[in-house]
Simulated assay, not measured.
Amino acid sequence: MVIIQQQDFDLAEEYRKLRDSGDSTGAIATFTGLVRDYGDLNDVTGLFLEHYPGMTEHVIEGLIAEAGKRWDVRAARVIHRVGTLALGDQIVFVGVCSAHRGDAFAACQFIMDALKTSAPFWKKELSRQGDHWVEQKDSDREQAEQWRESSD
């Protein structure tokens, strides 16, 4: 399941939904990203995120499907927030259920890493010095490339 929304999400509720996905689940791996006070700029006061409605969900659903081809994924949830976010706010949640921890960890990391370079999101850092649109980072592209190489 993929959800793009402005409002915050409840980690306990999202975990419960994954936990209730079935008796064959033996492991749940999750990742939660937060707004921090630095990025390209050192005095970030918040973020503004935009996305391409419809296409964003489609791309992330494809990443979940790809993870399901590589690992035993019983269920997956991705929530990504858009709009204006303050320091410490939750931005993204990725959760994956599997029969075994290795598959859950790998699929969760793959989805998050691939999301950073594939999904059509645009992020603007807000700061006291002014606003700054964030470019995709080399380290994110390199991590995504490692996943592509490992599938060959």
Rank of each mutant, 00 (worst) to 15 (best):
residue 48 F to V: 08
residue 11 L to R: 12
residue 29 A to M: 12
residue 93 F to E: 00
residue 93 F to R: 03
residue 10 D to P: 06
residue 71 W to C: 08
residue 56 T to E: 04
residue 9 F to I: 05
residue 15 Y to D: 08
residue 28 I to W: 09
residue 67 A to S: 03
residue 126 L to S: 06
residue 124 K to D: 09
residue 70 R to G: 07
residue 96 V to D: 01
residue 75 A to Q: 14
residue 127 S to H: 12
residue 119 A to Q: 00
residue 36 R to M: 09
residue 42 N to F: 00
residue 83 G to I: 08
residue 72 D to Y: 01
residue 79 I to H: 06
residue 71 W to S: 08
residue 66 E to V: 04
residue 12 A to P: 01
residue 24 S to V: 12
residue 32 T to F: 07
residue 112 M to L: 12
residue 113 D to W: 06
residue 86 A to F: 00
residue 18 L to Y: 07
residue 85 L to W: 02
residue 106 A to K: 12
residue 117 T to E: 02
residue 93 F to H: 03
residue 150 S to I: 03
residue 129 Q to H: 11
residue 14 E to K: 11
residue 83 G to L: 10
residue 35 V to D: 06
residue 6 Q to T: 11
residue 144 A to C: 08
residue 124 K to W: 04
residue 48 F to R: 15
residue 110 F to N: 09
residue 30 T to V: 05
residue 5 Q to S: 09
residue 85 L to P: 01
residue 117 T to V: 09
residue 110 F to W: 12
residue 62 G to C: 04
residue 132 H to Q: 13
residue 58 H to N: 14
residue 33 G to F: 03
residue 1 M to G: 14
residue 32 T to Y: 10
residue 67 A to Q: 00
residue 79 I to L: 07
residue 48 F to P: 00
residue 126 L to W: 01
residue 71 W to V: 07
residue 137 K to G: 00
residue 128 R to M: 01
residue 128 R to Y: 00
residue 32 T to D: 10
residue 148 R to F: 05
residue 9 F to N: 11
residue 7 Q to I: 06
residue 7 Q to D: 14
